[in-house]
Simulated assay, not measured.
Amino acid sequence: MLKFLKKAVKTGVVTGQDPLVPPNLDKNFRGKPEHHPEQCIGCAACINACPANALTVTTNLKTGMQQWSLFLGQCIFCGRCEEVCPTAAIKLTPQVQLAAFSKEDLYQRSDFPIQNCVVCGKPFAVQKELQYAQSLLMQAGQYQDEVALQQQLCTCPSCKREQNITQSQRIQLSRQLREQQS
C-alpha cells in the first residue's frame, strides 16, 4: 500500500478538471453540431448523408409542416451533415460537454411549412426549398418571368408529368395533321 501511495504522490494528478475547466482542444476538433433553422431550406441532404441516423424528418400532412430533428445522443460527430448542407445551416462546434438532465434536451428540432401543388392541391415540398431554387434560377438568369417560374416550381412532379404527357400527345397529333395535309 505504501508503494502505491508513494507512486501516486510522485506521479501527481493525471486527470483533468473537465467539468470545471473546459478541455484544451485542437482547432479542427469536431464537436456538437449546431443547426440554424433560419438558414435551413429543409432539403434533407443532411439526413441522407448521416451514417448514424441521428437526423430525421417527419411530415405532418394535417398541420402542413415538416419537422427536422437532430438527436445528439446518436450523433457520432462525423461532420457529413456540415459537408453536404447547401446553405451552411449546420456547423460543428468545438463544444464537447453535452450532459443533459433529460433525453429531450438532446434534441434539436425545426419546423418548416410544406408547399401544396397549385394544380392538384397535394403537399409535395418544403416552401423554403422551392424559394431557394427560385432565387438560384433567377440569379443565374435562367428565367426572366418570375411568376411563370413560381408557377412551375409550385407544381408537383406528378402534375408536371401529366402536363408533359399532354403536350407530347399534342405534338404527335400536330405531326399527323401535317402528314395528312401533305
Score class of each variant (00 low, 15 high):
R80Q: 15
L153H: 03
Y107V: 02
Q150N: 14
C85T: 01
Q144D: 08
L130R: 03
K103E: 09
R80S: 14
A148M: 11
V126Q: 05
Q127F: 09
G141W: 06
C81F: 01
A89V: 01
L153S: 12
A133T: 06
A88I: 00
D105Q: 07
E129N: 03
C154N: 09
R109K: 15
M138E: 13
F77P: 06
A133P: 02
G121S: 09
P123C: 07
S102D: 04
L130N: 04
P94A: 06
N116G: 03
Y107C: 02
L130G: 03
Q139S: 07
P113C: 15
K160W: 10
A140Y: 02
L98V: 11
K160D: 11
A133Q: 08
F77M: 11
K91F: 02
I90G: 01
N116Q: 05
R109N: 15
Y143A: 15
S158I: 06
Y132N: 00
Y143G: 04
N116K: 14
P113R: 10
L106Q: 12
C159K: 02
Q97L: 08
A133W: 13
Q131C: 06
G121T: 13
F77A: 10
L106E: 06
G79T: 04
R161H: 12
L137D: 08
L153I: 08
L136N: 08
C159P: 05
Q95P: 01
T93C: 03
D105E: 13
Q151K: 15
K128Q: 15
E104N: 11
C159T: 09
V126S: 04
E82T: 05
G79I: 06
P113I: 09
A88R: 00
G141N: 01
A125C: 09
L98S: 04
V84C: 00
V96C: 05
G79R: 03
G121H: 10
Q134I: 13
T87M: 00
F101W: 14
